[in-house]
Design a protein around this nucleic acid. Sequence first.
RNA 1: GGAGAGUUGUCUGAGUGGUCGAUAGAGGCGGUCUUGAAAACCGUUGGGUUAAUAGCCCCGGGGGUUCGAAUCCCUCACUCUCCGCCA
Length: 420
Amino acid sequence: MIDPKLIRENPELIKEILKNRNMEKVVDVDQLQKIDEQRREFMVKTDKLREKRNSASKEIGKLKAKGGDDSALMNEVQGLSGEIKDLESGVERLNQEYNDMHLSIPNILDQSVPIGKNETENIIVREWGKKPEFSFEPKAHYDIGTDLGILDFERGVKIAGARFYIYRGLAARLERAIINLMLDLHTKEHGYTETFGPFIVNDDSMTGTGQYPKFKDEYYRIDADGLSLIPTAEVTLTNLYRDEILEKDNLPINVTMQSSCFRREAGAAGKDTRGLVRVHQFQKVELVKFVEPETSFDELEKLLANAEEVLKRLNLHYRVMLLCSGDTSASSSKTYDIEVWMPGLDRYLEISSCSNFLDYQARRARIRYRPAKGEKPVLVHTLNGSGLAAGRTLAAVMENYQTEDGNIVIPDALKEYIKD
RNA sequence: GGAGAGUUGUCUGAGUGGUCGAUAGAGGCGGUCUUGAAAACCGUUGGGUUAAUAGCCCCGGGGGUUCGAAUCCCUCACUCUCCGCCA
């Protein structure tokens, strides 16, 4: 959620954001303002009546205590509650309308975000390493894996359905090694606290990080229990401090968690149908930061560097993209994607996405901190990034470290995690 | 899953229809005293909305009864105890 004051005081800015994000049709800002005015008018009216009722009731209480006659006052107030109730339902209706629209407004964009329609207008910030050269035609990871018998898509389909897979032997061990490398790096060298928590969360949590209510059909929901499978550990981690007031001295808080991630990929029919690129369940190590507002853009650079370091350790060529306005997700104010080179697929593949959400998630989830003793609590800024997606990292390792005879060389950085 | 008990402010803990946003203690903060500290004493100390130290809202969530609800009723969630089941 963006600051409601911003909608009131600077509607033109909201319109501009919507336009830059190609979301002009999502919210009618003028309509929203009208509703806002109306609901505030209703609220003032309701409060006035409440005040009247409260003081009259107190009066009655006093009279009763003295044994006086309260029938006149009683008659006067009798109808008030009904009237208040009517107004309240009006306020509730307007609030509902307002909130629905408010929740749909995307975050403001940082100045440095380029204006653009879609991913073709993202900007290459930097590249690291070089594309590996092969003396043979490099294979895609799914061919390597299937030929080696370590990736089994057929049985994944049999057991669960399309876009599921089985790791056997080396693939399973490699991914576990990759996860361990990442967790060790982030906890021992980058200062994150290793955390572990639920993969299944309630609706408040899904709303807190922005998954609900808008994108509900993108996630698996267990209706019987009102719970959802997390699409990323960001949900678990960011909601750690939902409805809490943090101590300034504890900031920044950096946490990391590995989890399975579950996505329905509802809109992705026909896209990336082969291999590990787009699946319903994958593992990921997530990085989340809770920081003071002034520091959040510096922290974004740190977060990005922390994620990049994994690829450096694995010696995988990658590039960093600054997403343009049209490609930046609704709750983010600025997002960098890290794209790893996939020689078999012959293209770059997104392997991490690092975002600064400013106070957008914090406002939804009511995560605050106290800047100084005695001062009012202030919303923190939240950030998160993949550090990295493990399944895609496995695929990248397989493609980049393949040999002509169809085998995979274990990267140096993983050797201590795979000991025979 | 069955039976029972509970959910109040940073914490402990009162409050069962009427000036209760809430007694009291602890803790925190400020002060007096002290060379300093402790002790003692005095004061202060929730969140939201708002221009507001006005009003309004918040005693697990939602709904109801009432002129009036932290207090009564319904419902949901969670916690604890016992039993059952279980990695």
